[in-house]
Design a protein around this nucleic acid. Structure first.
Lengths: 153, 153
DNA sequence: TAAGATGGTCAACGTGGTTGTCCAAAACGT
DNA sequence: ACGTTTTGGACAACCACGTTGACCATCTTA
């Protein structure tokens, strides 16, 4: 029956990867070749309001240390900046720089474009259905950022 | 306008991850707690006929060294064994052990079961459609094993 | 005020991937 | 046949990311 059970996860992943690669190929073309798939999710988790390393770790399902390290990299690349919280000397607020916000904005646009391409290929209604079915099946589950460690380590 | 473009990749990934986690949770219960998501794909790439490190690397889209390292780990865990090729003293044939074949077999069964659960939830026809649409959109693309490096590194 | 919780950083370690280098064995070409 | 590639494997160095454990400064709370 139906099809081989191996196919489903494979196809889901290939779809995921193509979208992510599509966005990063375009971002690279627009002057952000250093960004990795990982970073896009970090940007989104930081959001326009900013966060702290601990909070970021919680949102992404990794340790505060791991979140801190990723932030270090992003800071070095100029996408993020840290400042001390005037109300709490322990906290360091993390904010996207203008460059960071730009990436966030462009990513959203490019994802929308890619989605539109998919819609053009299989039909907008089918794509909506696909997405809806996926939500039905997977439920409300948060995205975990520990992909490298999860998959391999 | 339909939905947020961010949702699509997220949902695809969550679906992928749930299936993979489902399989590995069950495998862990059945005596294979050391296996990582990565390994499942390696098992499948090795197949019942076996391969070599170089060939495995090609199939999975990683360097022969990376493939070799992964094989080292699997060998240490007793899922794989190497033997010299009688016709070519350079080659080392890699084969699944009985334990390895067992995992491969069970994985396929569990994937089928999980797929059946999905079918029960959204309908078998919808799931078939979903899979078909995914194939239409993503085309015939091979799975790359370099997920850790791809995502994060 | 003393005790506890919280935010951040450093260090050590493990896994995975990459490139570069080397060697032995097979394949090839003249 | 013999010298020259090519090929399979292994080793080393290096980078990215994840984890846990420890430590300190600061805020909270009893």
């Amino acid at each position: 029956m139906s099809s081989d059970g191996f196919l489903l996860p494979l196809r889901l992943f290939v779809g995921f990867r193509q979208l992510i690669d599509g966005v990063h190929a375009e971002l690279a073309r627009e002057g952000h070749p250093e960004l990795r798939p990982l970073h896009g999710f970090v940007f989104q988790a930081i959001g326009r309001d900013g966060t702290t390393a601990v909070d970021l770790g919680k949102r992404l399902g990794v340790s505060k240390q791991a979140a801190g390290k990723t932030l270090d990299g992003l800071e070095r690349l100029g996408y993020v900046e840290r400042s001390t919280d005037p109300h709490d000397a322990r906290r360091k607020l993390v904010r996207l720089t203008d460059r960071g916000v730009e990436v966030l904005t462009r990513s959203a646009q490019i994802f929308d474009e890619l989605r539109a391409e998919w819609a053009a290929r299989i039909g907008a209604d089918r794509l909506d259905e696909l997405e809806r079915d996926l939500v039905t099946v997977t439920g409300a589950e948060a995205f975990r950022l520990d992909v490298p460690g999860w998959f391999g380590g």
